[in-house]
Design a protein around this nucleic acid. Structure first.
Length: 458
RNA sequence: GAGGUUAUAGCUCAGCUGGUUAGAGCGUCGGAUUGUGGUUCCGAAGGUCGUGGGUUCGAGCCCCAUUAGCCUCCCCA
């Protein structure tokens, strides 16, 4: 019997040490900025009750949930008629009580309702954990990937939105990205335009169609709109509005003069003006801000401002997105808690930085010094020195056995260990060790205090 | 769910209209160098050509099936 070839599920990945270090750099940068803006970390289980997740992401989303088969005799409770009819869709909730989380927002809403009496409102949390989607994998799309979310529950202040922009800006700038765009829009602005064009009843269809503008162009959108029951007359009213150019303030001003006013429009305009005013007094890094009227962000729970972040110079989808939802927790029976939040896709950020060659030399993490094994005679001294280094809080290791020096230096080289220590006969006779700087190749005889001083300041 | 494309050494790939023993670079290991890596030179190991079947005197190459990866649509981070 031959062992199965080792493999991992499609759309998942192993990470080697260098990749892991780079990923941690992204996550740590995000966590640092989130903390700086007053967000507190939480974690939730990888598994949620299937009932918590279904119906929250639309029909497509439900299909992309990874469901977990019940333990034990999972067929026992299943409906015999459905089984005989091989009705997978209807059977799924009977066979699977749990599923892997699909994003971090819905679990957060569940969390807020469950712990509402333990939380201080407005509650600002950050969360960086993997999520799973049963999507067909492709470039920039994985079945297991990490999201970094910040959300605030219990506040309608547009200050949060302004801070989200600053957070995106600060994290991505800190990671070395210089070319990226934060796109803004407002669901009520879209709804207001639909109303002004006389197709308020087709709001969802309008969103789906107009969201593709940058991909399929105005003519493509015309076709898409008419396929979705929007009349050519309505479409010709709508399209020029979506072609408006300029800074966010300029676009808003043009809308004001060109579109017949309505309550939705003016509410959206007030929100966006307020948010931009807040943002104007916050620190700016690298981001380009764009009011993109064609940004719709699917059919999910957003009701107010919406965001999406794209990196320039790469063919990778959005690296982040988010927005405001008037009623975050209503889906769990507790209404009246508004929310807003954004997500950063850590894996896509990784891919962007990788493709642009922006992973700077990360400060080597890990072993600071390797003690070269000289001979069996020197073992006691080598191991004693090792312990003393570790007591001094210096990450140190010894080569696992005496070996050719070249081999041991080669090991240090591959692991990018910056220093090596040799305790040969001559050194031991003098009560010192030879400390070698692996980068320059320079080496000098130093005593223990000298070693510690050198390595702690290195 | 639909379509396209690829699969040859640890990695990246070459392999002519089907023809003896399937190659290269990088990496690995050994040596030049028994107290010194990252440079150089010499040498070696490493392959059921994704899997199963078929055509043929003969298949890495042609045909069928199958599996997996990548890419596109849908949707998203």
């Amino acid at each position: 019997m031959s062992a199965p070839k080792p493999s991992i599920p499609s759309g998942t990945r192993d990470f080697l040490p260098l990749q892991t270090r780079r990923r941690q750099h992204i996550l740590q940068t995000a966590a640092r900025v989130f903390t700086k803006y007053g967000y507190q970390p939480i974690e939730t289980p990888a598994l949620e009750k299937l009932s918590v997740l279904t119906g929250k992401y639309g029909e497509e989303g439900d299909q992309l949930l990874f469901k977990v088969l019940n333990s034990g005799d999972y067929l026992a409770k299943a409906d015999a008629g459905l089984l005989a009819a091989r009705n997978s869709a209807a059977l799924a909730p009977q066979l699977c009580e749990r599923a892997l989380r699909y994003d971090l927002t819905v679990p957060f809403a569940r969390f807020v309702v469950m712990h509402q009496h333990e939380l201080e409102f407005p509650f600002k949390r950050y969360q960086m954990q993997p999520v799973w989607r049963a999507d067909r994998p492709q470039k920039g799309r994985y079945r297991e990937f990490w999201q970094c979310d910040v959300d605030v529950a219990g506040s309608t202040s547009l200050l949060h939105e302004a801070e989200f922009i600053a957070i995106y800006d600060e994290i991505l700038s800190a990671l070395g990205l210089t070319d990226f765009t934060i796109m803004l829009n407002h669901r009520k602005l879209l709804a207001g335009l639909a109303e002004a064009a006389g197709c308020a009843d087709k709001f969802t269809d309008l969103c789906v169609a107009i969201d593709k503008l940058d991909k399929i162009g105005p003519d493509g959108v015309r076709q898409e709109l008419s396929a979705r029951g929007i009349t050519p007359a309505q479409a010709e009213k709508l399209l020029p509005w979506f072609a408006l150019q300029g800074t966010p303030t300029q676009v808003l001003a043009q809308l004001q003069t060109q579109v017949p006013p309505n309550a939705l429009l003016s509410a959206a305009q007030a929100d966006l003006h307020q948010m931009l005013a807040y943002h104007a007094v916050m620190p700016h890094f690298r981001a380009q801000l764009r009011l993109d009227l064609s940004l719709a962000r699917g059919l999910n729970y957003y009701t107010g401002t919406i965001f999406e972040v794209r990196a320039g110079g790469v063919q990778i989808g959005s690296i982040g997105g988010g927005g405001r939802y008037d009623d975050l927790t209503g889906m769990f029976g507790k209404s009246g808690i508004p929310g807003a939040g954004i997500s950063l896709g850590a894996d896509r950020v990784y891919d962007v930085l990788d493709e642009l060659g922006l992973f700077a030399q990360l400060p080597h993490s890990g072993t600071q010094v390797l003690i070269i094994r000289f001979s069996p005679d020197s073992e006691a001294e080598e191991l004693t020195l090792l312990s003393r280094l570790r007591q001094a809080d210096i990450a140190a290791e010894v080569y696992h056995e005496p070996a050719r020096l070249g081999k041991q230096f080669g090991y240090a080289d591959k692991k990018q260990i910056p220093w090596c220590l040799v305790l040969g006969d001559e050194e031991r006779a003098a009560g010192k060790a030879t400390l070698k700087d692996m980068q320059s190749g320079a080496q000098q005889a130093v005593d223990f205090a000298g070693i510690v001083a050198k390595l702690q300041h290195a």
